[in-house]
């Protein structure tokens, strides 16, 4: 792995794999957004995606997050081809395998922290007791054990994003997708959230971070530069390696 083209060896431990993916939007005339893009994310890896706006990084994130399907090519999550799934099937895959962290937190305003964190499990039909236990445990891990019954409006931006991180982890996802997770935060709080993502990664989770800030991207093990709908270059940063899957943080 590393050159963006999946090899037989890499595929074995790949949790996400995109092969020759095209995405074309029909806006009066066809607008190609992704152009023969291939990318593999290994289990336990921490990858940052950078690219100017319009480069296709949002579309790439939507495809990996199963929010969208490619026009051509294959997207595999955990070895399963998700390319041709129906909308509801994709929703189920999202609920089981994806953890989203958004720039604007996207917590539900009428639910408490605990309920927000537990919500993905509601859609998966997990029993109430188990949902609460698991959500409470994660809120403790992100340091919000005393904010469980607060609504989002009663929390600071950093606290909200920590709730969102806890929510992203509640379903023990195959991959955590963080889309500009520090984009709405000041630099100090940003640092705290990036530290939190480091811990999430160190515990064995696969993390994909989309950002346009170099300093943020440098937290990852490698940076994938996207330009004009395809992988322009992959920058290995070395350093931290993942822990074994046995002591996953979640």
């Amino acid at each position: 792995m590393g050159d963006g083209t999946p090899s037989e060896d890499a595929r074995a431990e790949a949790v996400v794999s995109l092969t020759g993916v095209y995405k074309v939007y029909e806006l009066g005339q066809p607008v190609p957004v992704l152009d023969d893009l291939s990318l593999t994310l290994a289990e336990g890896s921490y990858t940052a995606i950078m690219g100017p706006s319009g480069s296709g990084k949002s579309t790439l994130l939507n495809l990996i997050g199963c929010l969208d399907a490619p026009t051509a090519g294959i997207v595999e999550i955990d070895g399963r081809d998700v390319t041709t799934l129906s909308e509801d099937e994709r929703a189920t895959v999202r609920g089981e395998k994806i953890g989203f962290v958004f720039q604007t937190f996207n917590l539900l305003p009428r639910l408490s922290s605990l309920e927000n964190v537990a919500l993905p499990l509601v859609f998966r039909g997990v029993a109430r007791e188990e949902r609460r236990d698991r959500a409470a445990e994660l809120l403790e891990r992100v340091g919000l054990e005393d904010r469980m019954d607060h609504r989002p409006t009663e929390l600071s931006g950093g606290q909200r994003q920590r709730v969102a991180v806890a929510r992203a982890l509640v379903n023990r996802p195959t991959i955590v997708l963080a889309d500009e997770p520090t984009g709405s935060l000041d630099s100090e709080t940003s640092g705290q959230i990036l530290d939190l993502l480091d811990r999430v990664h160190a515990a064995g989770n696969t993390v994909l971070l989309v950002t346009h800030e170099r300093t943020v991207a440098e937290r990852a093990e490698r940076i994938v530069h996207v330009l004009d709908g395809t992988v322009e270059s992959v920058e290995e940063l070395g350093g931290r390696r993942t822990a074994s899957a046995n002591d996953r943080w979640t």
Partner: peptide, 16 residues
């Protein structure tokens, strides 16, 4: 609308 988007992103199906 946005909440619906969030719920769908975290696994809500149409029937939910």
């Amino acid at each position: 609308t946005r909440e619906i988007g969030v719920m769908k992103a975290i696994g809500a199906r149409r029937r939910d």
